[in-house]
Write a protein that binds this DNA or RNA. Structure first.
Length: 476
RNA sequence: CGGGGCGUGGCGCAGCUGGGUAGCGCAUCUGCUUUGGGAGCAGAGGGUCGGAGGUUCGAAUCCUCUCGCCCCGACCA
């Protein structure tokens, strides 16, 4: 077992930080609470962007860019919104040696400035729907930060739509939630529970907030993405109105939704192990690493030629492949290095393999299999797809086996303290019961799953009649 | 914002109690030997001890102030 990183079972938090730093996904920046996303981590983010951006465009969304600075007065127009964000906004009050007439907020999210523009652009029902997304950075002055999970500045996409009817907006919010679920499950191989947030966990200014919740390797929950039905709250605050077919002026119905670089933290915590990262093939910056092995210069020449030729044939199949031809590191070092970086598939190629017209294919964490050169490309393609499936199924089995249905509050409190996990508990939807759970167990009501069946019975806290089981967990 | 911990070559640390030539491991560089699961030997380079002030013949070490970071609790993608 490697001693270069803390063991996952020993100290999950230390392990997480070790993996990110040593795999060179990110590093601490000289500014408090900020991080540098290093090239390898950024390549991962670019893959996430590319795939998700494709899904959003397929469904009619277009990209645009709005300013980083927002007039302070804009933030104040929606009451719940400003209350939610005021404590964590960074404000620019000075430019050069001159005080600004009106302070400018560094966007913590772009509802206000975007909807001020929507108000200008929308006149008729024919201008709707507006389906705009933007990839950008936002700043939230968090008191306690953690690499990828919560940093002062982070990267994300934020989609903002405006519709003619409530039904359309609601359908949009759910459609996006479905896209997030599909993306996170199929491409990131992370199973999620899609659901509705309780009132207390709603986005500041939203009518309703939908969420996808994932279980990390320490059995804690992570909110992986949110989609909000904003109702007409912002439309009224920003005067986003249109004249409908019937001649009446009406406020638009809006949605907003986002996922962030936090997803990278989720990838680490869901798939990683004591050897380091384990990246799902569909987003891995390097899907296949070829490690050539040689002793003599002559062998080196031959092996490298063969390695490049294999790499070329894989690239023709759109596989992201890297040949590790470093001559100053040993083979053993390279094996460990690429496992730490989470490359899903390794190909070992030495003189012995060349003589047999084969290569050793090594799925991360599995046994080495000799594969003949002729069958190699097909085999690798199939393996990448198998690994993608395996990661998802493994994560799903983990989440399912750590999700429990309980009716006894004391037992829940005891088990979440010692073991963690997701608990399906009946809740009467009273804030006092929610508060009690939060204060006594540090767990929160994550969501009411979308497909939750009607399961009438007593609230786990107060025994009042309740209809549904909510998912309850400690969360990041 | 409250509680705790830590700042000493690039990284991880020792030295501080009881002041007296700044050290160890890893990494780096050079050479030779190695190379199928984190190589070996020999040599070399690299530090105003976070910063400022004070005590002293003399401060990494003692005193005062200050800055920064990490971890744990209340808020959050």
């Amino acid at each position: 077992m490697p001693e270069f990183i803390t063991r996952k079972s020993e100290d999950f938090s230390e392990w997480y930080t070790d993996v990110i730093l040593k795999a060179e996904l990110a590093d601490y920046a000289p500014v408090k609470g900020c991080m540098v996303i290093r090239p390898y981590g950024y390549a991962l983010w670019e893959n996430i962007q590319r795939i998700l951006d494709g899904y959003l465009k397929e469904t009619g969304h277009v990209n645009a860019y709005f300013p980083l600075f927002i007039p302070w007065s804009f933030l104040e127009r929606e009451k719940a919104h400003v209350q939610g964000f005021a404590p964590e906004v960074a404000v620019v009050t000075r430019a050069g040696d001159r005080e600004l007439e009106e302070p400018l907020v560094v966007r913590p999210t772009s509802e206000t400035i975007m909807y001020a523009m929507y108000a200008k652009w929308i006149r008729s029902y024919r201008d709707l729907p507006i389906l705009i997304n933007q990839w950008n950075n936002v700043v939230r002055w968090e008191l306690r930060t953690r690499l990828f999970l919560r940093t002062t500045e982070f990267l994300w996409q934020e989609g903002h739509t405006a519709h003619a009817t409530y039904e359309e907006a609601e359908a949009e919010a759910l459609k996006i939630l479905g896209i997030y679920k599909k993306f996170i499950e199929q491409d990131l191989a992370i199973p999620v529970i899609a659901g509705v947030k309780p009132e207390s966990e709603k986005f500041a200014g939203a009518f309703r907030t939908y969420t996808v919740e994932a279980m990390m390797g320490d059995r804690k929950a992570l909110q992986a993405g949110t989609s909000h039905n904003l109702g007409q709250n912002f439309a009224q605050a920003f005067d986003v109105k249109f004249q409908d077919r019937d001649g009446q002026w009406k406020y638009a119905w809006q949605t907003s939704w986002g996922v962030s670089t936090r997803l990278i933290g989720a990838l680490v915590m869901v798939h990683g192990d004591d050897h380091g990262l384990f990246l799902p093939p569909r987003v891995a910056p390097i899907q296949v690493v070829i490690v050539p092995i040689w002793k003599t210069d002559e062998e080196r020449q031959q092996v490298l030629v063969a390695a490049q030729s294999i790499a070329e044939s894989l690239r023709n199949l759109q596989i992201r492949v890297h040949v590790d031809d470093r001559d100053y590191e040993t083979v053993g070092y390279k094996f460990n290095d690429w496992e730490l970086r989470g490359v899903p598939l390794r190909v070992e190629l030495g003189p012995r393999d060349l003589a047999r017209r084969q290569a050793l294919v090594v799925p991360r964490g599995e046994a080495k299999t000799p594969v003949s050169m002729d069958a190699l490309a097909d085999h690798i393609q199939a393996e990448l797809s198998r690994i993608q499936q395996m990661l998802f199924q493994r994560a799903r089995a983990f989440m399912e086996s750590n999700t429990f249905t309980l009716d006894d509050y004391a037992e829940f409190a005891r088990r979440i303290e010692t073991y963690g996990g997701f608990y399906r508990l009946r809740w009467c939807e009273q804030a006092t019961c929610e508060q009690k759970i939060r204060e006594e167990t540090k767990a929160t009501l994550r969501c009411l799953p979308l497909n939750a069946p009607n399961e009438p019975g007593p609230c786990v806290v107060c025994s009042a009649p309740s209809r549904y089981r909510y998912v309850v967990a400690r969360a990041y």
